[in-house]
Amino acid sequence: MSTNSSALGRTPAFLMLLPLIAVLCFAVFWPVANLLGRSFFAPDFTLQYYETIVSEPLYWRVFIRTFWISALCCILCLLIGFPIAYAMARTSAWRALLIAACVLGPLWTSILVRSYAWIFLLQRNGVVNDLLIDMGLIETRLRMLYTEGAVLVAMTHVLLPFMILPIFSTIRAIPTDLERSARNLGAGRFRAFLTITLPLSLPGVSAGVLFVFILAIGFYITPALVGGPRTLMIGTLIAQQITELLNWPLAGAISLLLLAVSIATALIFQRALSVGRIVGND
């Protein structure tokens, strides 16, 4: 497109964006800025809410638990998601479609429904306990719901598609001739994968890990339902401060920290990605 035509096309495009910008300003930016802003005033400028967070071990525990569960969730999603994405990218069209339906199906189901499904499965009188007792593997019913394990399993299930899709699209863009070429030059199946497919799929892996991690540290509904009050995560903590304790400034302070961590993670990954490119080169 020539400079001329794009200059002409810019003004109407901007005009068309105006309603969206207006909505975003009023419904997102303003309330978020308001919430974050409140964390610094009581009513004069203060850092007392941040001091509260730093000095209160409960908040530390919640933050550490959130990062720990999110990191584990990332690893689980990667371990489960990568083979699925690879299979999807390298199998015949109709099989890929079948896998895609299984992967995307959950994405179209409400998170609420999926979380309640996990409650139904994991509760004391739930399906999993019934099964284990019927098989004679356990005698007394296990406590599975409202544990970190339950949160981890449910979150991994919910977030898995966000890992699979970017990896899938990256692997699909790698020509199969590259793997064949490596095989032809003397690499066995596994070495061809290790030296060619894996390094070339890293941008997708990085995007998937970033997606899952950032979504996981801010996750609310699933940890709140499956984790209960004992397995408090940051998202649940913020909601609790606002809806139950009406402590808006503290909620704002926690939110700002969460936002800072998310942005920092994104930046680190962007950097790791460009480093990964250099390392993968030879």
Binding site: D177, L178, N184, A187, I196, D282
Partner: peptide, 25 residues
């Protein structure tokens, strides 16, 4: 026999050079 055990050279249609390695690599 597996392709990696045939010791046959091959030039592919679209070259299939490894994009993440140098020419020497």
């Amino acid at each position: 026999v597996e392709p990696n055990r045939r010791n046959i050279g091959m030039v592919f249609q679209r070259y299939a050079l490894f994009p993440h390695m140098t020419v020497a690599g």
